[in-house]
């Protein structure tokens, strides 16, 4: 409730068309529209110097500072690929006196992973799995764990299609307590492990993200959480080729994402081979009636020719 009140306050303080000028760096941002809201703050599309950017703003100022720290340290190690790049960090005081902290980051435009997979075909699931595992591998090697990995925090940008992370606020140093999580994706909720930040925590959430693609309404845990998850995984047709790898991830059998990636690539390779095989078989089956037909026609033609010879 209190949280709702804070959001209401934020909504009345910030509306499209208004100008927000930073206290320290003096950059002015024009608010375009709201992109989304989370537990800590709201994200707006804004414009500065003719360029679009995403601006996250909140009056929970220490939480914002912590998020900025994560973005900074991710930016230091790997260029910008793992998260959106950070453009500015500043403070702003609303006309009625509420103090806010905000940061500005690269505006990523794209489509949700679920709708992309449903529109373009289930083979994309495998592609995005490998991409994500690659990124997670990099992140884990730097000593971080994503934490709040979920569909809402992933975006498919186009040409070439690639998964990007939009919100890295939950990223936690390995070995610590997970900073932020969403129940459906959290192995603690499913009674399948601790909330300590380790690679296997992310791999569990990773699997839940792909389960979520096929169960958009999610489901609750019931009395036998592990059995239920495995059953749901078996029943999702799009995930059938990957289900053994995904089950191992749910059970926490992978200590690293590179290990999981290797087995995933193997599975994808095998299914493609199988597909090619079945395609060949189908072609052969298609050819058989064609041969029959062709043979029939030539026999008929031959008979006709003989008959025509007789009547000459």
């Amino acid at each position: 409730m209190k949280m709702n009140q804070e959001w209401k306050k934020l909504n009345s303080d910030i509306h499209s068309g208004m100008h927000i000028q930073g206290k320290w760096h003096k950059q002015t941002y024009v608010i375009k529209r709201k992109l989304g809201a989370g537990a800590i703050g709201s994200v707006y599309l804004c414009e500065a110097n003719g360029k679009l950017a995403a601006l996250k703003i909140s009056d929970k100022r220490s939480s914002m500072t912590v998020e900025v720290n994560v973005l900074r340290s991710l930016g230091k190690v790997q260029g910008n690929r793992l998260g959106p790049s950070l453009l500015d960090v500043d403070d702003w005081t609303a006309p009625i006196g509420t103090k806010y902290s905000f940061y500005v980051m690269e505006y990523l435009q794209g489509e949700s992973m679920a709708s992309y997979i449903h529109r373009h075909g289930k083979e994309w699931a495998g592609v995005f799995m490998v991409q994500l595992l690659e990124d997670l591998e990099q992140l884990h090697q730097q000593g971080w764990v994503f934490g709040d990995l979920k569909l809402d925090n992933l975006l498919i940008v186009s040409s070439p299609p690639r998964v990007r992370w939009v919100d890295v606020g939950g990223t936690t140093q390995t070995g610590r307590a997970i900073k932020e999580y969403t129940e459906f994706y959290d192995r603690g909720y499913w009674e399948m492990g601790s909330r300590r930040a380790e690679p296997s925590y992310d791999l569990f959430a990773f699997t839940m993200a792909f389960i979520h693609v096929y169960y958009p309404k999610r489901f609750v845990k019931g009395s036998q959480p592990e059995k239920l998850l495995f059953r749901k995984l078996d029943e999702a047709r799009g995930l059938r080729p990957y289900r053994n790898v995904l089950k191992k991830a749910l059970a926490g059998k992978y200590a690293s994402s590179s290990q999981m990636k290797r087995e995933m690539l193997q599975v994808i390779h095998d299914t493609q081979k199988k597909k090619q095989k079945t395609r060949k078989q189908i072609q052969q089956e298609k050819e058989a009636p064609f041969l029959l037909e062709a043979g029939g026609i030539s026999i008929l033609a031959g008979a006709y020719y003989l008959i025509s010879l007789l009547f000459q």
Binding site: T65, D91, K99
Partner: peptide, 22 residues
Amino acid sequence: SLEDLEPEKRGEIMEVVEDMGE
């Protein structure tokens, strides 16, 4: 107070606070 510091310094101090909390 912490919130009157410029964002960069505040970030460094928050890291210490976070360490303590952990």
